[in-house]
Design a protein around this nucleic acid. Structure first.
Lengths: 162, 162
DNA sequence: GTCACAACTGTTATATTATAACATTACGTG
DNA sequence: CACGTAATGTTATAATATAACAGTTGTGAC
């Protein structure tokens, strides 16, 4: 049940639907409350494969009714982060949907295209292993890891704006 | 000429001196101007192995004379970043001295202790290789990479505040 | 059902990090 | 030393994020 690569043509509505189904079932299973705001924020984040800033989400919410204050959005983001439904990209101060919400036992790595701004979430056991061997070597107990690779995706290479 | 590990006991004054010497020679070689502010900011960053925020640097500068406005510090930081003399840690919004300013052909990885706040810069060809193989597999041209591992260093493991 | 509690959301204010725009000063070169 | 460029000073403000407290809603116990 992997989601599609943002760098390949796909029916994106499937990504959104899949993400919402995953969220529903995960929340049901764990007794989390996927409230209206939280669900809407998750939908907005999944509207594309581009990472979305908190204030961009606020803008969007403003377009469809009364614009909430920042804490509303940040609280929804905190919930979604803790539930493992989204990731924060530190290099962008922005948020992206988690495409593998099931398996939480290894790290997520991100490819961020600087041209089309799409973000791909990658899992890679080779890197996992190198990181854990590095940590072991240095006697370092890792609790959070963030690997963000910025550059140019396959579609944007060689194209006019590359 | 590797600098000392922040997680091992060492004469830290050596780190500072070494960093300043490296900076001087790099700037001389490339015709960069290591001005008073820039040098002072670099020294402050090297004062410890903890990452320093821009406004913390401002505070320090304020203690030793007239407190400059934010752009002064940010411009110095930009210079030092471009010269490769410091790194920015996205997960902390803070800056740390580069301990390997000579070799720029591979990536830097960071171990960030959440207890003592020290930061170690690591180079690791195993991870380098896995990253480039990943990028190749995904047809992604990497231009920037950031790997930040947060956790507990060897000293802080098992100690009271861990 | 309704009471009580906890979880969630609203609201106001403000903290923190960073940059834009323009004025002034310092620096090296001819 | 005059000139141009690079660096710094200054003022204002943008962008991101959180604190603190008030109000509302949803849920389980009874």
């Amino acid at each position: 049940m992997r989601t599609n690569s943002p760098f390949k043509h796909h029916q994106h509505s499937q990504c959104i639907q899949q993400a919402l189904r995953n969220a529903e079932s995960l929340c049901k299973k764990n007794g989390f409350r996927l409230t209206r705001v939280r669900k809407r924020v998750l939908e907005l984040i999944w509207k594309s494969h581009q990472a979305l800033g908190a204030y961009a989400i606020l803008e969007q919410l403003g377009l469809e009714g009364v614009k909430p204050a920042p804490p509303t959005v940040y609280r929804a983001l905190d919930f979604l982060l803790e539930a493992g439904l989204i990731h924060r990209l530190n290099s962008l101060n922005a948020y992206t949907g988690c495409s593998h919400p099931k398996d939480d036992h290894h790290g997520s790595y991100f490819l961020i295209c600087q041209h089309c701004r799409n973000v791909a979430e990658i899992h890679d056991t080779g890197i996992d292993q190198q990181i854990s061997s590095l940590a072991h070597r240095e006697n370092f107990a890792v609790s959070e890891q963030a690997l963000e690779l910025s550059g140019t995706c396959q579609n944007c290479q060689g194209s006019a704006h590359a």
